[in-house]
């Protein structure tokens, strides 16, 4: 496992609901090998409150660590493996 995982940032601010959740699920499933090995970290920027909650619930239930941090006017969701 690399010391510093590659960070893939996806900006979904302002998008129609449920684009954020669908994109997060798609990216998580597409990159599951890299995410589980710790090579990759997904960072999603969203201003959709519902998707933020939904991502935390759904992707957390898939066995990933989901961290939500509030930034200026949006949320930064980080998805990576549970260390």
């Amino acid at each position: 496992m690399p010391d510093v995982p590659v960070c893939k940032e996806i900006d979904l601010r302002g998008q129609i609901c449920p684009s954020t959740l669908l994109t997060a699920l798609r990216e998580t499933n597409t990159n599951k090998t890299e995410l589980r090995s710790g090579e990759l970290k997904l960072v999603i920027l969203t201003d959709n409150r519902n998707s933020t909650t939904h991502i935390s619930e759904s992707i957390g239930a898939m066995g990933y660590r989901v961290e939500v941090v509030k930034e200026q006017e949006y949320y930064r969701i980080t998805i990576d493996r549970i260390s």
Partner: peptide, 14 residues
Amino acid sequence: LGEWRLQIKLPWRQ
């Protein structure tokens, strides 16, 4: 909440 923000950028399909 400091969350009011108008973002015009949107994919054309949306």
